[in-house]
């Protein structure tokens, strides 16, 4: 487990800073009263509640303590989101899982809510607070659902390289360049060899 933890890498580079607009702060006050914006720290923190239902699955009402670090924004434009109460770590522990299996990147509870090449699809106009909050809620619904029913409400991506392989298989045209870049392949033959090798490794 420790070796795995040490192996954890958060690949995004924290470069940008997000400053909330007045309308975003108003949105937060009216729609998510238990979340507060700390102007000095430039952090959104507090309780994120949700009452969600995915497709025909069961609805879940739940809440998590979260922190959205607007000073640490990836080059893809998304801030770091943490679950600060250690609940997901605890769920993983209780179910005998490595915490990465519940999509947190480190023991600080940093959530891995999306595969980087998917960010552009989810946020076509760049960072939008309401889209991010709904996205986090849906991610936490996934965790709560798994906690409650011991099954995943929808498919996750595999960890690390497997996730990228799955993404490539999902839509070769759309994601080929992102996947190629991820594997650091300089030529098409090298990329083809890499994909072949991974498909054999993961038998997909």
């Amino acid at each position: 487990m420790k070796a795995k933890q040490e192996y954890l890498r958060h690949q995004v580079h924290h470069m940008q800073i997000i400053k909330l607009t007045t309308s975003e702060i108003d949105y937060l006050k009216s729609e998510h009263k238990s979340l507060t914006y700390n102007r000095i720290k430039n952090i959104i923190e507090g309780t994120l509640s949700f009452n969600l239902k995915f497709s025909d699955e069961k609805a879940i009402e739940d809440k998590y303590q979260v922190e959205i670090e607007l000073n640490e924004v990836s080059d893809l434009g998304l801030p770091i989101v943490r679950e600060t109460d250690g609940r997901i770590l605890k769920i993983a522990q209780e179910k005998g899982l490595f915490f990465g299996d519940l999509h947190i990147n480190n023991a600080e509870g940093e959530l891995c809510i999306i595969l980087p090449p998917k960010v552009k699809e989810k946020y076509p106009n760049g960072f939008e607070l309401n889209t991010l909050i709904e996205h986090i809620q849906e991610h936490l619904y996934w965790v709560s659902y798994f906690e409650k029913y011991n099954k995943k409400p929808w498919k996750e991506y595999g960890h690390g390289e497997l996730g990228y392989l799955e993404l490539y298989i999902e839509n070769k045209k759309l994601y080929a360049s992102d996947v190629k870049k991820y594997f650091g392949c300089k030529s098409r033959p090298e990329f083809r060899r890499k994909i072949k090798e991974l498909r054999e490794k993961y038998k997909i």
């Binding site: 954890l8 890498r9 958060h10 690949q11 969600l52 239902k53 995915f54 497709s55 990465g100 299996d101 999509h103 947190i104 990147n105 891995c112 809510i113 999306i114 595969l115 998917k118 989810k122 709904e134 996205h135 849906e138 991610h139 619904y141 996934w142 929808w154 498919k155 996750e156 991506y157 960890h159 690390g160 996730g163």
Partner: peptide, 10 residues
């Protein structure tokens, strides 16, 4: 919601 993002772990 019907089109969620799939969680990932890096």
């Amino acid at each position: 919601f019907t089109t969620p993002s799939s969680p990932y772990a890096n």
